[in-house]
Write a protein that binds this DNA or RNA. Structure first.
Length: 301
DNA sequence: GTCCAGGCTTTCC
DNA sequence: GGAAAGCCTGGA
């Protein structure tokens, strides 16, 4: 059994698993169901399985510990530690945001949320698909794309796992094929054109790691299908730009309901959120989104 | 330059 | 039948 202390985490290695000891601020349900990721599969034992960066991993909360199965210390340090944002102290973030009474309630509800650092290309395509769409259908489309164009990685708990395809896999496809096969509707041409632009280097998505949120948004919004909301999702969920504040229908409703008290444009809501939450805007948005959506706040009957 | 209405595929409730 | 983690286009 290898042992390791990283920051405030105590990590133990076992045979094909890693154990995070006494981990606060980490609840698989909150992390995987708060809307930032579309591919985590809930198993019968309440664990969650997914594939990322070419590896299949299973995550389960057992008492106060988190068990990561089908992995080892080497992958945990090189992939999962960053993927699960384990270098960040969410206790401090929650303490700071809890000064706002509404955030305090939202944080109480989604206490175990962490914001993942996911693969940029997968997130770009996933959130292009998410536009004016519904979650079950979004998940279906991403699953079909991976199965058809990705690489078979392996079997886990009876399920076959495929990697998300790289941009070149889309190059030879036609819009009609993509629309009909993956059920993505009018988003098909946007997916193809975005993939082409990234493949050909017309848009450099690697340089975004070192740029500001504003500079990054300007670049990403050159991609077809990527507007203000989708670009903020990409920056928050795969590039670690936590000052992004994605405004969708739910955030619009709950911000109007809790704060603004009147009909407000998305642009104004984004500016309001930025002013209110500053560098913690992205975290605030996730706590609020998860809370508001689960409670159905402001939903029309 | 900004702002806004209408259209877009298909599924889900 | 309306709404859905919005974006694009054209016109004011």
């Amino acid at each position: 059994m290898g042992k390791l202390n990283i920051n405030h985490y105590k990590i133990e290695e076992g045979k094909n698993f890693i154990k995070l000891i006494d981990s606060r601020d980490f609840n698989p349900k909150d992390i995987f169901e708060c809307g930032q990721a579309f591919r985590w599969k809930k198993e019968e034992d309440s664990s969650y399985t997914n594939i990322a960066y070419g590896k299949i991993i299973n995550v389960k909360k057992e008492g106060s510990n988190i068990i990561f199965r089908n992995t080892n210390m080497e992958d945990f340090k090189s992939i999962w530690f960053n993927y699960f944002d384990l270098s960040r102290d969410y206790g401090e973030i929650k303490k700071s945001l809890s000064k706002d009474p509404i955030l305090k309630k939202a944080i109480h509800y989604g206490d175990g949320i962490r914001i993942l650092n996911q693969d940029p290309f997968e997130i770009i395509i996933s959130f292009i698909i998410s536009a004016n769409n519904q979650i079950p259908r979004i998940k279906g489309s991403i699953g079909k794309i991976s199965q058809d164009l990705g690489e078979y990685i392996g079997l886990y708990m009876g399920e076959k796992y495929y990697s998300f395809p790289s941009p070149d896999k889309f190059l030879s496809l036609k819009g009609d094929y993509v629309r009909e096969k993956y059920k993505v509707g009018f988003r098909a041409d946007r997916i193809l054109e975005t993939s082409r632009m990234i493949y050909e280097g017309e848009i450099d998505i690697d340089c975004i790691y070192t740029l500001s949120r504003e500079e990054s948004k300007d670049i990403l919004m050159n991609l077809p299908g990527v507007g203000p909301k989708v670009s903020d999702c990409i920056l928050l969920f795969s590039y670690g730009k936590q000052n992004a504040f994605p405004v969708d229908v739910w955030v619009k409703r709950l911000m109007e309901y809790f704060y603004l008290k009147e009909d407000t444009s998305n642009k104004k809501i984004e500016e309001y959120g930025q002013k209110l939450f500053g560098d913690l805007s992205g975290f605030a948005q996730q706590y609020l989104f998860y809370y508001g959506r689960e409670l159905g706040i402001g939903r029309k009957k």
